[in-house]
């Protein structure tokens, strides 16, 4: 068995829009190692989100195959996919996606309840993780009562509560200011080291690059370039140079 936690092989997605065929993905192949921090970059409409959703089993390829820990996602039934989302993947969203009618504690505990844990234990586990992300004093606050950065921390706690192997983060800093965004990236990195998780993040944020082990640039439904650590740090400079110029 390979040591890749995720492999994508010739993943293609074609949408039929009326008479027209839209090729969202034109055969993407990518291998992601356990414990790696991968950033997927690309402009909107590049197919980045489509590819990202396929890794999470939220969308199915027209052709090609995504495997997670050796299992083909396309062969899983709905209950198995739900199990994978619950136990293997922690989702983090651009808009935080907390349930407005639930407190911080309940937002995190619900994930634990889906994992089949009894409510009292789920609340204890949720409190532990919230403590870990620095929100031990906000357990009974509603999402609307805390700041954006704190909401994203709650969301990170929720993503981590079932000890997933993979964190899928969709523009996690997209709705945050520069400083708060950096804090969230630092927190993600800290958790990655401590819990040995793989982080896959779709992003526009240059700050996320320096935290990444690998960066994949996607353009027109294909991987335009794949860069490992060291290769793209020079690249960041030149991109910065370009934006300034």
């Amino acid at each position: 068995m390979s040591d890749f936690i995720i492999t994508a092989k010739d993943v293609t997605k074609v949408y039929i829009m009326g008479e027209e065929e839209v090729h969202a993905l034109r055969g993407i192949s990518m291998n992601i190692k356990r414990g790696e921090y991968v950033s997927i970059m690309g402009p909107s409409g590049s197919g980045k989100s489509t590819f990202f959703n396929m890794i999470g089993g939220l969308d199915t390829p027209t052709a090609g195959e995504v495997t997670m820990e050796g299992y083909k996602l396309s062969e899983l039934n709905n209950r198995q996919l739900a199990w994978v989302r619950c136990h293997k993947i922690g989702f983090i969203f651009q808009g935080f996606n907390l349930i407005p009618a639930m407190t911080a504690l309940e937002n995190v505990a619900i994930g634990r309840i889906f994992a089949g844990v009894a409510p009292a234990q789920a609340r204890r586990d949720a409190a532990d993780v919230l403590e870990k992300v620095g929100l031990g004093h906000r357990l009974d606050h509603l999402p609307s009562e805390v700041s954006g950065g704190q909401q994203q921390r709650i969301a990170i706690a929720r993503a981590l509560v079932n000890r997933p192997a993979i964190i899928l983060a969709d523009e996690p800093t997209g709705n945050l200011d520069l400083k708060t965004g950096q804090e969230i990236i630092n927190l993600l990195n800290e958790m990655k080291r401590e819990l040995d998780i793989t982080i896959i993040s779709a992003t526009h944020d240059m700050k996320m690059l320096s935290a990444s082990d690998t960066v994949a640039w996607i353009k027109d439904g294909a991987v335009e370039r794949l860069a490992g650590k060291g290769e793209f740090e020079i690249e960041v400079g030149s991109i910065d140079g370009q934006t300034v110029a």
Binding site: R79, A101, G116
Partner: peptide
């Protein structure tokens, strides 16, 4: 698929608690 399990459903009692607290808020 030996270590991928099927997700288990949530009992009515817990669903009731979730709905009830949402309704109040």
């Amino acid at each position: 698929n030996h270590n991928i399990e099927e997700q288990v459903g949530i009992p009515w009692g817990i669903a009731f608690t979730v709905s009830w607290s949402g309704l109040k808020r």
